[in-house]
Write a protein that binds this DNA or RNA. Structure first.
Lengths: 204, 204, 204, 204
DNA sequence: TATGAATGAGGGTTCATTCAT
DNA sequence: GATGAATGAACCCTCATTCAT
């Protein structure tokens, strides 16, 4: 393994980022399997072979993108910063934050999710990667339930429902549903209202 | 176009179903592109060429599975049957019904969703196919809001959130999330509670 | 090898002829390789498998057609019948006869010639099959040259030129040349005139 | 469309020629359909996939060979150069020229003619391609007939007979007829004698 | 005898990957 | 380091042939 000087390493990082950005765009457009390495190279303005100087295989591109996707998710510290805030504000802030982050995400998600769903290894890896975040969320919810700030409900299920709702809406976004696309900005407030107030509480 | 006798047609239908079931299993396991026609044939206990006596191409298999997926979804008439029921019961019944149907669905969904997400044509077709169901749901929600049974919220967004949540949970199911897998049965009641009562209504 | 009764044999012969006629039509239309056994069966009004009750393979169909083609050619006796006739009448009669026979031939020729030209074994077989006819023709020409009825020229070359001209015109016919197609009837007289009188003898 | 530098273009042309030469050899030997792309590649000393860097499909190889065949044929200008020459010399020179050209042709012809005869589209294309040459030849013959240099005969038929004779002899050559193969050199003189003097003019 | 569903070997073509320049 | 021509394994699909009915 050669050790690269700092500037050398920087060049390498830049190239890798350039290639990943290109791959993300093309995967999002056409899917992983319908995309050829040549197309990625063209999109990146490079030759076919150059890709292989920075990634061992086409699959490595996917794994690297998956890593990027996961990194955005790794924010257990977020909760700590809002420990003192009341539940409603917390939910609201959390959703706004989430949906703002999603901006960078959407293309990456579209590029990567079909292949994750289709590949058993990636599915397992992804679940594993998500576990700490899930556990942190569960703990935070449990804490607030203990504290009486939220009604007692199953924190594990609640976590899945919250995350699942966001994933599901992203799926509609990827699919091109016009309503979700047009009203993406309104979703955090809508969800906060729904989840906090519920449908039953009329006139609230 | 040759006309087949009834028993002939039955034989054909049975073979098609046999092949589709095999394809659904293998696609769900490995994804569409990682699956060879030979593997589908083996799974169905047939020879490679036999597949092509019943489906024009590998892609036709996918489209046929998509058709099956869609057919389950086309139940706008469901709402009519429950027009007189109060909102909470309606939501509860709707979710139970939905999650029960999902049983047949899950494998089909896993088999087909990655390719739908990855293929622009399929995405568009699927959105189009879903539109009537969305519109029916929106109308039903709007009606109940008018009637004062539900608080006024945007019915289009509400529809997407409900459908999105279910889709998202299915995604977790496909991914193999142990919580969603273990507690699938509990989800309808949990969702009904969440959506109707909300988190805010403490001390229930 | 079963021995068939006469009527049995007749039925078999009729079926074989029916199949060969169908094959000849379809081969002439699409060529041997672009034709499927199923197409031949449909053209004959039979099922795929039935073909194989009468011919061992698709190739056998071709060989049988080649046999039919050859049989038309086997007429060395023709010359004997015209031994006493003078050269000009002989040429004229020969060509008329030939072109009349060609009527039955043309489809068969079109069906079979491309594959003969493309297949080394068939080429050799066909040359061998043609040899006796060539030799008879050479002998007849030589005899007339000896007798002073025709100028001394190489009888082997003359035979090839005569046969080749007819073959070449058949090729144009197969290719669809409009002139040859429209004026097929005029060709025997034209050839007789050309070969006997030549171009040089003006005003004749 | 990328623009290639001169040397680049030269390399491409060389490769294409190399592949076409190999294809021509193998097609001539086994026919188009009995030849696999792999065989062509092996004959050219290349890998299977390399063929497809230079030709879009196996059929494109055939079409390119057909183009080569046609190009040799496009020599209507030839006649102009010999306008002043007397008829006998003209015929003689024309045939010598033709048969000399045929040298390069024979393999190409053998490679391509079976498929042309078997494929309706190619047949039509080939007839169309040949039309100008036929028309030029007809005009030349008509001119000489007008001028009294040749006896009045139908120039369209004459053209077909001349061309057909050559084609027919090529067919015998392809078929491997030993006489035509052994005496190919003698054919131009023989044909000139036959066509100019005819058989009738004894003792000439 | 006739049928046609089933078979599976074979071939054209694509494309991830390598490597000489 | 960058290139892109070359490679060849892999896969979808066709179709000659078989055989149970």
């Amino acid at each position: 393994m050669r050790i690269h000087s700092v500037s050398e390493q920087e060049r390498i990082d830049r190239r890798r980022a350039q290639i990943l950005a290109a791959a993300s765009r093309v995967f999002a457009r056409q899917g992983f399997h319908r995309t050829t390495v040549r197309e990625i190279a063209r999109e990146a303005g490079l030759a076919d072979g150059t890709i292989y100087l920075y990634f061992a295989s086409k699959r490595e591109l996917l794994l690297a993108l998956l890593g990027q996707l996961g990194r955005v998710d790794e924010r257990p510290a977020d909760f700590a910063a809002m420990a003192g805030v009341d539940a409603r504000t917390f939910i609201d802030a959390y959703l706004r934050r989430r949906f703002a982050d999603l901006g960078e995400w959407r293309q990456l998600f579209a590029a990567v999710i079909p292949e994750v769903l289709a590949d058993a290894d990636l599915r397992a890896a992804q679940i594993e990667q998500a576990t700490p975040a899930f556990e942190a969320a569960e703990a935070e919810l449990a804490r607030r339930m203990e504290a009486g700030e939220l009604p007692r409900r199953d924190p594990a299920l609640a976590t899945r429902v919250v995350a699942g709702t966001i994933i599901g809406l992203l799926v509609f976004d990827v699919m091109g549903d016009p309503v979700v696309r047009a009203r993406w900005e309104d979703l955090p407030a809508f969800l906060a209202g729904l989840w906090f107030d519920g449908l039953g509480s009329e006139g609230r």
